[in-house]
């Protein structure tokens, strides 16, 4: 391969690179001086147009308006935004699906196809197909909630609420405690549903198992003292293990909720704070980071749900004995 020798750097000629570098540096210096840090160090140098209000993040979402007394918060509006985006995009693509895909359809197929393969690789051929819609919806909802809230202007668009206060119309739905909690509940109940559907009421024995206990009692009544006592003892252990299992399921809800909520809220605050301290360019790397975090959190939430579903349907009740 004999490529012509490239002149310059990064595909630009040297003078252009130098000019861009100088502009970049100038912006950084200006931003540092004009931002909150600069004001503390150098005092006000007449760069007040760079000033950004001190962020005062609030955990509960703000109520933008009410429908029949039902409060609609900006996080709900944010979730709607995501829903509309996802549904319109999917509809636009799937309206005319072709066997030989175009560019947009390829991207669409790639995203859903990877999720589908992921489901099948974890849960197997049949179950992967059953779990795919749920897992994919969780992934897409979380990921696009995170990514769309990174669009510049998304978090700063304000409207007047009925009481006359300025309100942010949109808020990343992941940063509202209620959404991760709702997703965690969905995850919990779907695990329960698929567990019951696959294994029937035997699935509940995982949590409440009196069988060994009753067997032990029966042996005691029949006068087999030694066998009966050990049977009762094992039965008590089974009950405790069942209780722990149940507790772990409840804790899953908490951990799923708090992981997503904490990560996304922290990310949002991080962006606000960096933009406040040093405006403009300083927040850029954190934007990249937040893109990655949004993807990861979506993958973790969806992946954990998938794993829990797989565990619930894999029939590990038999393994315990």
């Amino acid at each position: 391969m004999s490529e012509p020798k490239k002149k310059g750097c990064l595909g630009c000629s040297f003078p252009l690179v130098i000019i861009i570098g100088i502009v970049f540096l100038g912006l950084v210096v200006l931003a540092v001086v004009g931002g909150a840090i600069g004001r503390e160090l150098f005092g006000d140098l007449g760069l007040s147009f760079l000033e950004i209000d001190k962020p005062h993040p609030e955990l509960p979402p703000e109520v933008v308006f009410q429908i029949f007394g039902f409060p609609i918060t900006n996080s709900i509006v944010g979730a709607w935004f995501t829903i509309v985006f996802l549904v319109v995009f999917s509809w636009a693509v799937s309206r005319r699906l072709k066997l030989i895909p175009g560019r947009l359809q390829s991207a669409f197929e790639y995203i859903l196809g990877s999720l589908y393969d992921f489901c099948q690789s974890v849960a197997g051929e049949v179950n992967g197909r059953r779990f795919f819609p749920l897992v994919a919806t969780i992934f897409l909802f979380v990921a696009f909630n995170a990514w769309l809230s990174l669009i510049p202007g998304f978090g700063s668009y304000e409207v007047l609420n009925p009481e006359g206060h300025h309100m942010h119309l949109f808020r990343g739905a992941n940063t509202d405690f209620n959404l991760p909690l709702a997703l965690a509940f969905v995850s919990f109940f779907m695990v329960l549903f698929f567990g019951l559907k696959t294994m029937g009421f035997r699935y509940l024995e995982l949590y409440v198992n009196f069988r060994q206990f009753v067997k032990g009692l029966g042996q005691l009544v029949r006068g087999k003292l030694k066998a009966g006592l050990s049977g009762v003892f094992l039965g008590v252990i089974d009950l405790v293990v069942g209780g722990l299992e149940f507790l772990s399921h409840l804790i899953r809800i908490v951990s799923l909720t708090l992981r997503l909520f904490g990560n996304m809220t922290a990310g949002e605050i991080l962006l606000l704070v960096t933009a406040f301290l040093i405006p403009w360019l300083f927040a850029l790397p954190f934007y990249g980071l937040e893109l990655l975090v949004g993807f990861l959190q979506a993958l973790i939430f969806a992946g954990l749900t998938l794993v829990f579903l797989t565990m619930a349907t894999a029939g590990h009740g038999e393994e315990a004995h």
């Binding site: 955990l59 509960p60 979402p61 039902f70 409060p71 609609i72 918060t73 996080s75 709900i76 979730a79 739905a173 509202d176 405690f177 209620n178 959404l179 909690l181 709702a182 509940f185 969905v186 909520f261």
Partner: peptide, 12 residues
């Protein structure tokens, strides 16, 4: 943390 039953239901 921001829990609110109507909003929770709405997100569900």
């Amino acid at each position: 943390l921001g829990f609110n039953t109507p909003v929770f239901l709405a997100q569900l």
